[in-house]
């Protein structure tokens, strides 16, 4: 609730501020100066709080239990994925996602085990940002959101409804709700522990490497792995 209300209050103000400081540079990232400042704050928070928490979690909780946790949150996500597949005109995938939820919530004991994948119901990756993209909406300017990280105007618009129907938000007891939310964040961060050290190794400038990776991978997701490929071979 706190996060939701804060987001409601902050976002319009943030967009207004951002709109005022467009600069020349990368056309996909007109708010780069502000985005970079937010990234620096996010990065510091990550370095001193979230990443150590994720490392501790990885070291303390054995792999099978972490898999259960990932499956549990993934199971909730499958419902949202299914709706988005329907919205994108892919009923077969959508009903397969609902089937996954049904199988994993029961046979898979509240989603802790991903039985559905074993019986051939593959997991999909869809969200409202992708749906909007599928409907023809461009990504709009790149946004580095405080705490949430890389996004675009379109993906932020898609993420807000997702927050509004978050089943975890309906958990009555506040300490439990916060614990579940915290676990979701830390578990999610733990999955990126290998990728972030690769980012450190690979990038001349982490901000722009991350941005360009995010924008291209979202384009790829919108087109389900077959983005329009510009032919460019500059070799010799």
């Amino acid at each position: 609730m706190v996060v939701r209300n804060t987001a409601r209050a902050i976002l319009p103000a943030l967009l207004a501020v951002l709109a005022g400081c467009a600069t020349t540079g990368n056309p996909a990232d007109p708010f780069e100066p502000v985005n970079r400042k937010i990234y620096a704050v996010n990065d510091t928070l990550d370095r001193y709080a979230l990443k150590p928490a994720a490392e501790g979690y990885r070291d303390v909780v054995p792999l099978p239990a972490r898999t259960n946790v990932s499956n549990f949150f993934g199971n909730i996500e499958d419902v949202w994925t299914g709706f988005n597949n329907l919205l994108q005109g892919k009923p077969r995938e959508g009903f397969s996602d609902f089937g996954r939820f049904a199988v994993n919530s029961t046979v898979g004991i509240l989603g802790f085990f991903d039985v559905a994948s074993d019986i051939g119901l593959d997991k999909h990756d869809e969200d409202l940002g992708q749906t909007l993209g599928r409907w023809g909406m461009g990504p709009g300017p790149y946004l580095m959101l405080p705490l949430f990280g890389p996004s675009t105007v379109r993906d932020t618009a898609g993420a807000i409804p997702r927050q509004l129907v978050d089943p975890v938000a309906s958990v009555e007891r506040i300490p439990v709700r916060n614990a579940v939310r915290g676990l979701r964040v830390v578990n999610g961060r733990a999955q990126l522990l290998g990728a972030d050290s690769a980012l450190d190794d690979a990038a001349l400038d982490r901000y722009s490497y991350l941005r360009d990776f995010y924008l291209k991978s979202r384009l790829n997701q919108v087109h389900d792995g077959n983005p329009p490929r510009e032919k460019d071979d500059y070799y010799e």
């Binding site: 001349l204 990776f213 997701q221």
Partner: peptide, 12 residues
């Protein structure tokens, strides 16, 4: 994940 690790450097 569908992103070229080579052309990802182009902007930088």
């Amino acid at each position: 994940a569908g992103v070229s690790l080579v052309t990802n450097y182009r902007e930088t």
